[in-house]
Protein backbone atom coordinates (compact mmCIF):
# COMPACT_ATOMS: atom_id res chain seq x y z
CA UNK A 1 0.00 0.00 0.00
CA UNK A 2 2.74 2.40 -0.89
CA UNK A 3 1.01 5.71 -1.10
CA UNK A 4 3.73 7.16 -3.28
CA UNK A 5 2.24 5.35 -6.22
CA UNK A 6 0.08 8.40 -6.78
CA UNK A 7 2.20 11.39 -5.98
CA UNK A 8 -0.57 13.94 -6.30
CA UNK A 9 -4.19 13.70 -5.45
CA UNK A 10 -6.02 13.26 -8.75
CA UNK A 11 -8.67 15.84 -9.49
CA UNK A 12 -11.53 13.99 -7.92
CA UNK A 13 -14.60 13.70 -10.03
CA UNK A 14 -17.31 13.54 -7.42
CA UNK A 15 -20.59 12.07 -8.62
CA UNK A 16 -23.14 14.42 -10.07
CA UNK A 17 -26.13 15.77 -8.20
CA UNK A 18 -28.32 13.28 -10.05
CA UNK A 19 -26.35 10.35 -8.62
CA UNK A 20 -26.63 11.79 -5.11
CA UNK A 21 -30.38 12.13 -5.38
CA UNK A 22 -30.80 8.65 -6.80
CA UNK A 23 -28.72 7.18 -3.97
CA UNK A 24 -30.89 9.15 -1.56
CA UNK A 25 -33.98 7.56 -3.04
CA UNK A 26 -32.48 4.07 -2.83
CA UNK A 27 -31.61 4.70 0.82
CA UNK A 28 -35.16 5.79 1.48
CA UNK A 29 -36.56 2.69 -0.23
CA UNK A 30 -34.22 0.39 1.70
CA UNK A 31 -35.34 2.00 4.97
CA UNK A 32 -38.96 1.53 3.98
CA UNK A 33 -38.17 -2.11 3.20
CA UNK A 34 -36.64 -2.55 6.65
CA UNK A 35 -39.65 -1.14 8.42
CA UNK A 36 -42.00 -3.00 6.07
CA UNK A 37 -40.20 -6.24 6.82
CA UNK A 38 -40.65 -5.57 10.51
CA UNK A 39 -44.35 -4.81 10.10
CA UNK A 40 -44.81 -7.89 7.98
CA UNK A 41 -43.01 -10.15 10.44
CA UNK A 42 -43.85 -8.79 13.88
CA UNK A 43 -45.97 -5.67 13.49
CA UNK A 44 -49.71 -5.07 13.20
CA UNK A 45 -49.84 -6.58 9.70
CA UNK A 46 -48.06 -9.78 10.57
CA UNK A 47 -49.83 -12.85 9.24
CA UNK A 48 -48.96 -16.54 8.91
CA UNK A 49 -46.42 -15.66 6.23
CA UNK A 50 -44.75 -13.39 8.77
CA UNK A 51 -44.13 -16.35 11.03
CA UNK A 52 -42.48 -18.15 8.12
CA UNK A 53 -40.12 -15.25 7.58
CA UNK A 54 -39.07 -14.99 11.21
CA UNK A 55 -35.92 -17.15 10.92
CA UNK A 56 -34.69 -14.97 8.05
CA UNK A 57 -35.71 -11.68 9.66
CA UNK A 58 -32.45 -10.81 11.35
CA UNK A 59 -30.14 -11.75 8.44
CA UNK A 60 -32.36 -9.91 5.97
CA UNK A 61 -32.44 -6.84 8.13
CA UNK A 62 -28.67 -6.85 8.63
CA UNK A 63 -28.21 -7.27 4.88
CA UNK A 64 -30.42 -4.26 4.14
CA UNK A 65 -28.63 -2.21 6.76
CA UNK A 66 -25.22 -3.22 5.39
CA UNK A 67 -26.39 -2.16 1.95
CA UNK A 68 -27.36 1.29 3.20
CA UNK A 69 -24.08 1.55 5.09
CA UNK A 70 -22.10 0.71 1.96
CA UNK A 71 -24.03 3.16 -0.22
CA UNK A 72 -23.45 6.08 2.12
CA UNK A 73 -19.78 5.22 2.59
CA UNK A 74 -19.08 4.69 -1.11
CA UNK A 75 -21.01 7.58 -2.63
CA UNK A 76 -21.68 10.21 0.00
CA UNK A 77 -18.34 9.74 1.72
CA UNK A 78 -16.72 9.37 -1.71
CA UNK A 79 -14.76 6.25 -0.88
CA UNK A 80 -15.48 4.97 -4.37
CA UNK A 81 -13.60 7.83 -6.02
CA UNK A 82 -11.16 8.89 -3.33
CA UNK A 83 -7.73 7.55 -2.59
CA UNK A 84 -7.68 3.86 -1.56
CA UNK A 85 -5.87 4.84 1.62
CA UNK A 86 -9.10 6.31 3.02
CA UNK A 87 -10.90 3.05 2.37
CA UNK A 88 -8.15 1.20 4.21
CA UNK A 89 -8.23 3.58 7.15
CA UNK A 90 -11.98 3.05 7.44
CA UNK A 91 -12.47 -0.61 6.51
CA UNK A 92 -9.70 -2.12 8.62
CA UNK A 93 -11.16 -0.76 11.89
CA UNK A 94 -14.60 -1.69 10.65
CA UNK A 95 -13.55 -5.33 10.29
CA UNK A 96 -11.99 -5.35 13.75
CA UNK A 97 -15.13 -3.70 15.14
CA UNK A 98 -17.37 -6.34 13.57
CA UNK A 99 -15.23 -9.21 14.82
CA UNK A 100 -15.24 -7.61 18.26
CA UNK A 101 -19.03 -7.43 18.40
CA UNK A 102 -19.39 -11.02 17.21
CA UNK A 103 -16.68 -12.29 19.56
CA UNK A 104 -18.15 -10.59 22.59
CA UNK A 105 -21.67 -11.74 21.85
CA UNK A 106 -20.54 -15.35 21.38
CA UNK A 107 -18.37 -15.37 24.52
CA UNK A 108 -21.04 -13.75 26.65
CA UNK A 109 -23.76 -16.03 25.28
CA UNK A 110 -21.66 -19.02 26.35
CA UNK A 111 -21.15 -17.51 29.80
CA UNK A 112 -24.81 -16.73 30.28
CA UNK A 113 -25.96 -20.14 29.05
CA UNK A 114 -23.44 -22.03 31.15
CA UNK A 115 -23.78 -19.90 34.24
CA UNK A 116 -27.55 -19.61 34.39
CA UNK A 117 -28.03 -23.32 33.72
CA UNK A 118 -26.04 -23.90 36.87
Amino acid sequence: MDAHATSAEPERSHPSVGVYVRIGLVLFVLTALEVGLYEFTYGGHAGPAGAAIQPFFVPLLLLLSAGKFALVAMFYMHLKQDHRLFTGVFVFPLIIATVLILGLVVLEAYHFAFARAG
Partner: peptide
Amino acid sequence: IGSECLFFASLIS
Protein backbone atom coordinates in the same frame (compact mmCIF):
# COMPACT_ATOMS: atom_id res chain seq x y z
CA ILE B 1 -13.68 7.96 12.05
CA GLY B 2 -11.86 4.62 11.93
CA SER B 3 -11.18 4.96 15.63
CA GLU B 4 -14.82 5.84 16.31
CA CYS B 5 -15.85 2.53 14.72
CA LEU B 6 -14.39 0.78 17.74
CA PHE B 7 -16.12 3.19 20.09
CA PHE B 8 -19.55 2.42 18.72
CA ALA B 9 -18.76 -1.27 18.33
CA SER B 10 -18.08 -1.44 22.07
CA LEU B 11 -21.33 0.36 22.89
CA ILE B 12 -23.30 -1.91 20.56
CA SER B 13 -21.68 -4.98 22.11
